[in-house]
Design a binder for these strands. Structure first.
Lengths: 220, 220
DNA sequence: GCGCTTCTCCACCCATTGATGGAGGCCGGA
DNA sequence: TCCGGCCTCCATCAATGGGTGGAGAAGCGC
């Protein structure tokens, strides 16, 4: 079980819930010399099962997955196999997701829409033990630095703001006073670098702190 | 040039900018009996060129495309070939996009993440001259009905709201008085069925009236 | 224990926002 | 031509939102 930097075939696990995209990845990768797709998974739970079964060199994983998110998958697998290498692949490119994925131990981050060459080059790079972050993403990560973290409570309030709640409603929902809500809003506005709740809402959506999908359902 | 409902091969053009997804579609479709991918395009302009060249029975088209949007592509092609049949394929499922695509003449709307069977069944259905809208989407379309259209000016104001502008800033930007801005906001809040600007902003993003991507760039 | 952060709350003030109702001008369809 | 929709603007009022400064309690790391 030596770290492979040499000639042997790179064994890849593809984790992606969209059938078409998964199919595309497999089709693309299987014609490449030196890369073999050893397994596929359509959700987070299946991903872990497949990983245990195949012990791939590289796991290509989408962040938005049913049952268990991509970040969760990375964290859990790395708990039992710390040397596992991940490349995150996603359509959405909220800063928050990138950040969390890299924190969780992903070695590279690719947006769908990349070229085949980029994909293959990244797989080889990561398999060789290096990391690879595209310049555009590196830049946004840099911007994110220096930005303070929101506290859990501030996050709760922000979530409510995105859902269009008034301060009074937020107070009721979180069972705190309206004054406290205002306090939290005040500090989260500062941290997000915005001046009002509407800007806070769009900033939260842009950064992927809250997702548009979560808006449809009242409360999961 | 008779409408094909019989045995002959269905000739498909795939228009999709994401390499991986396009590859997936082509890989999936080319193994199916009775379906042949006759062309591929990665942007709107190329789509039109490819259409003229191959005159496919079915055009599978992504809505978000470089250079020319999916809706534009459908409209332009239908101007010269009114009988052309389109299936719209997209990840994002904003109501506005669905609506405009169907208005423009798309016969079916599929979300990425569909099964292979759904895709093939839909292609056959549309080729047979029928339409196919998934229940989930049909429901949202129904909800959208009864909703009044925004006027162009209301749309302008909404856009500014999503960009986090205050009424005063909007007034300056659009070169109208703040009073007028308020008037527009009042009516657009009603039409969107929301009670304040923050809800208006998230509603606009949900419905795809304004996109998150457009928030990054200051002014295109 | 001490310092730090977080969460909670208060009071006060002013700016912004949204609601209401009214009004004139313009344009395009009936 | 008249009607209806749209865009423009006005005044006024009540409610909400955001800014400031201060303060006590709980928890954590050292």
């Amino acid at each position: 079980m030596t770290a492979g930097t040499g000639r042997e075939t790179i064994r890849v696990l593809v984790v992606e819930d969209h059938h078409v995209v998964r199919q595309g990845l497999v089709a693309l990768l299987n014609v490449v010399d030196g890369i073999e797709v050893v397994g596929e998974a359509a959700d987070g739970v299946e991903a872990i099962t497949q990983f245990r079964k195949h012990q791939p060199n590289i796991t290509l994983v989408d962040l938005r997955l049913p049952r268990l998110s991509g970040v969760d998958v990375i964290q859990r697998i790395r708990m039992e196999t710390p040397g596992a290498r991940f490349i995150v692949l996603t359509t959405y490119d909220g800063d928050e997701d990138i950040y969390r994925a890299l924190q969780a131990g992903a070695r590279a981050y690719l947006l769908k829409g990349m070229t085949t060459d980029e994909l293959i080059a990244t797989i080889r790079t990561v398999h060789a033990g290096k990391s690879h972050i595209p310049p555009a993403i590196a830049q946004r990560l840099a911007e994110r630095m220096g930005t303070e973290e929101l506290t859990p409570r501030e996050f709760d309030v922000l979530e409510q703001i995105v859902h269009g709640k008034s301060n009074k409603e937020i107070a009721t929902e979180l069972e705190i006073s309206e004054a406290t809500v205002k306090t939290h809003i005040n500090s989260l506005l500062g941290k997000l670098g915005v001046t009002d709740r509407t800007q806070a809402a769009t900033a939260a959506l842009q950064r992927g702190i809250v997702t548009l999908e979560s808006l449809r359902k009242p409360k999961p």
